[in-house]
Amino acid sequence: MPVAVGVIQTIGFPAILAAADAMVKAGRVTLVSYDIAESGHFFIAIRGSISEVKPAMEAGIRAAEEVFGGEVVTHYTVPNPPENLESVLPISYTEEVEMFRL
């Protein structure tokens, strides 16, 4: 099954929370990473099949933009990420998220 990684960066925590909620409800994806990107910016990363990540990303972007004051700074989807990308960036399945893996 071809897998993909989707990442969204927002300004403000409520926007990233709304994005995360919408993404896991819109597709069979696993939330693999969340962190503070920089001053007031947050990012979230999801993984799943390419066909599931695309609608999940669309739902997450819409949800983040609907939050009062929410702003999507950037977003990107990587279909079939190479192994070296996974070893360097925080996008791999960890023990904490393994039980939620779909």
Rank of each mutant, 00 (worst) to 15 (best):
G60Y: 09
V24M: 10
T77M: 15
A26L: 00
T74A: 12
R101N: 01
R47L: 02
Y34F: 10
V88D: 06
F43M: 15
V72R: 03
P14H: 08
S49G: 12
V97C: 05
V72P: 07
I61S: 04
K25N: 08
R47A: 03
Y76E: 03
S39F: 14
M99F: 09
M23I: 06
I91D: 05
I36A: 05
V7T: 13
I91F: 14
D35W: 07
V53R: 10
R101D: 01
S39A: 15
S92P: 01
E66S: 13
I16T: 12
L85T: 12
A64H: 09
P82D: 07
R62I: 14
V53T: 08
V29W: 08
F68D: 09
P79C: 03
V73N: 11
N80P: 00
S51Q: 13
P81Y: 07
Q9M: 08
S33M: 00
P79E: 08
M23Q: 06
V29D: 06
G69F: 09
E98K: 13
N80S: 10
I46R: 05
A4K: 05
F42V: 12
F42M: 11
P81Q: 11
K54H: 07
A22D: 06
E96W: 05
T30W: 11
M57T: 10
F68N: 02
Y76A: 09
A59T: 14
A20C: 13
G27P: 14
G27E: 07
L17R: 14
I61M: 01
E52Q: 13
A37H: 08
P2K: 13
T30I: 04
V32H: 05
S87I: 04
I11N: 05
D21N: 12
H41W: 04
F13P: 02
A22Y: 11
G27R: 10
V32T: 13
V5L: 15
P82Q: 09
T74G: 08
